[in-house]
């Protein structure tokens, strides 16, 4: 095995890690906020329910790569889009990728949170109402804390999926981890070695994330962790 090539490749690939993490972090954070809003709107606000269902249906029923292309190549076709103040962002592959990843993960996240909302015991909500909690307080103190705890394991998987999905940003020219891997492969044609290096980096990232999510889960659920006395 050619260790010089491996370490050289590893070095080049590691330079792409910050962008991979950046894309994942920004889009999962913004996506999670959007997901909670969508799920709550669907549960609590009847006219919004149809919109949210349509949103989730379209975003989950179509490939992410196509969504990225639609935003990156499709929107610029219209002069009026090019005239908006958003154009400086929408012309950059970086922001297009983040936008696409965000709206995509929000759709999956909204469904996960919806499942969490459905699992909130009716009794807990009723006790809140009986104590005179207004709707917003009820959501903030009772419903969302329970729903998010329920949704966390599934949401952890979604975060991992998003880290992997950032690789698609390389197809719109971003030089994150997969983009660099592609460029090294196409220069050297040593796909196996590059795959080994890039794969290892992704595995380390996903492993750390899995542990982190599990840690947050334990931390948030002392009532499940503790044994019955």
């Amino acid at each position: 095995m050619d260790f010089d090539f491996l370490s050289d490749t590893m070095g080049k690939l590691l330079a792409g890690v910050p962008m991979t993490l950046e894309l994942a972090l920004i889009s999962t954070t913004a996506g999670a906020v959007l997901a909670v809003l969508l799920a709550v709107a669907r549960a609590a606000f009847v006219p919004a329910a149809w919109f949210v269902r349509g949103y989730v249906y379209v975003l989950r029923g179509t490939p992410l790569l196509l969504q990225i292309f639609l935003i990156y190549y499709g929107l610029g076709q219209f002069a009026w889009v090019r005239d908006t103040i958003l154009w400086p962002f929408l012309r950059q592959p970086y922001w297009c990728a983040i936008l696409a990843l965000t709206i995509n993960t929000a759709a999956y996240g909204a469904e996960i949170i919806r499942g969490g909302l459905q699992s909130v015991p009716a009794g807990a909500v009723e006790a809140g109402r009986a104590a005179g909690m207004p709707r917003l307080l009820l959501y903030r103190r009772i419903i969302l804390p329970i729903a998010i705890r329920q949704a966390l394991p599934a949401y952890g998987n979604e975060i991992i999926t998003m880290v992997k999905a950032t690789s698609l940003a390389s197809i719109v020219t971003l030089m994150e981890l997969s983009g660099i891997a592609y460029s090294i492969i196409s220069e050297t044609y040593r796909a196996l070695e590059v795959f080994l290096c890039a794969g290892t980096i992704y595995l380390v990232i996903t492993f750390v994330l899995t542990r982190a999510v599990a840690g947050v889960e334990t931390w948030l659920n002392p009532h499940l962790r503790a044994s019955r006395t």
């Binding site: 891997a181 890039a198 794969g199 996903t206």
Partner: peptide, 8 residues
């Protein structure tokens, strides 16, 4: 497989 992007 579940930790590596499909594209890779």
């Amino acid at each position: 497989i579940r930790g590596i992007p499909d594209l890779l």
